[in-house]
Every structure is written in structure tokens, then in C-alpha cells.
Amino acid sequence: MGSSTINVTLKVWRQKNAETKGEFETYPINNVSTDMSFLEALDTVNEQLLQQGKEPIAFDHDCREGICGMCGAMVDGIAHGPDKAVTLCQTHMRSFHNGDTIVVEPWRAKAFPIIKDLVTDRSAFDKIIASGGYVSVSTGGVPDANAILIPKKDADLAMDAAACIGCGACVASCPNASAMLFVSAKISHLSHLPQGQVERKERAKRMIQTMDDLGFGNCSNHRECEAVCPKEIKLENIATMNREFASSLF
């Protein structure tokens, strides 16, 4: 099994709410099984804090199997921690060493205000989708599924982009807090499919406009977003979005 135990120290950002100033608190945890997930290590700290009558660390999480997109924090300066292509809930303690001090911070971006501790408000992403991240079909009266033929290659490219879980790691890791990888993934998903053609210009225009209005930064092609994305969404999507934007100008 290769499981063993290590002792680590967590240095976690604590902030009571959006209005107050936060600070780091240090929590040593001993005998952490290397089979434990990172969030389970946080659970352990929280159980200890509760026993001492102290407030546990607030952090978002839900499915704990890497698909819902709810969890996420900067771990030692990297979004979702050191492992490639996984969310924080799938990061395991075996990626750390005995004696490590691990710094845990919330996503930081103007468009993702901190609610408490490691919990941030990512509703900006929902607003972007609401401004155009859909095909305008209502329920009923649609053609038979096989009436729309889609080349396998296009379906695969659409699926690659559609795999985005909306966790916000791209924004968190971008030196400019830009949301372009997220926005481009949706634009690219729909622009690869025949269903998405009718509204493609309007969609690109509106989603980009909304993204800008929400206070995200600009892309300067650092590629940090691609490197931390738990679903390995590719930077090419941003290029696709840029093309969609260009065509929407005319």
C-alpha cells in the first residue's frame, strides 16, 4: 500500500468576512496518513479546532471526486496544489513531505471576493454564462438527435472544452486574474458544434463584455491557467475565442 504518516504544518488564511482583515494562522498536524486527501487534512484540523471550541476553517467543497468544481485554494502558491490536472479534493497528502509547512490561501481576484477564510464568491462565472453561454432552445419541439450530424472530431473538440468545471483556478493562477480560459472554454465548446452557430457572434460579444464588466484582468499569455487547470482545458480555446471576437466585429 505504501501508506505512511507524516507531520506537517498548515499555514492557513483566516478571515472572518469580506469586511475584516485576515491573517495567517498556523496549525501543526501530526500523524497524517499519506492516503488522506488534502481536504481530509483540513477536516482533521477542523475537528481539532472544534474540540477546542474554536471556529473551524471555512472552505468550499462538495463532490470530493474532482468534478463539481466547488473546492479550490492556493497551496504553496499553486492553484489546487502541486499535482497536475487534479482538483484540491483529489490532491493527496502523499504529495507532501514530513516536516513541510504548507501555505493555504483563498483564490484572490477582485471578481472573486472573499466570503470567509478560503471561501470566495465565484458567482461572476454564473453571470458570464447567463449572458450568453447557452444555445437558445426551449424545451420541446427540437429535431431528432441524429438529425444533426456532427463530425467526431468536432464533437471531441467540443467535449474537450466543455469539460471545464468552473472552479476558478484559471483566474486564481493568472498573474492578471483573467477569466479568459473559462470564458473561452464555453465559447469554444459551442462554436465547435452546429447547434452553436446561429448565435456565435452575439455570444462571443456578450460573454466577453460581461467578463470585462465584472472586473477580471486581461490575458497576457502567461499560460499559468492552462498549467493548473484540473481538466486540462487548452490555451487554444482562448485563441478560438479571440477569433470569434474578431468575426463578431464585422
Binding site: Y134, M159, Q195
Partner: peptide, 22 residues
Amino acid sequence: VNIIDQCVAQGVPFAREYGGML
């Protein structure tokens, strides 16, 4: 049967065969 039609119309990227069918 209606569900699949509806989802495809929304742009759900179901797996396809080389001929473009689901």
C-alpha cells in the same frame, strides 16, 4: 427519447461515431 433530442439541441457533446451519428 425526447431527452436525448433536447440535450443535443442544447449542445451537449455526446460521443459521436465517425459518420457523425450518436
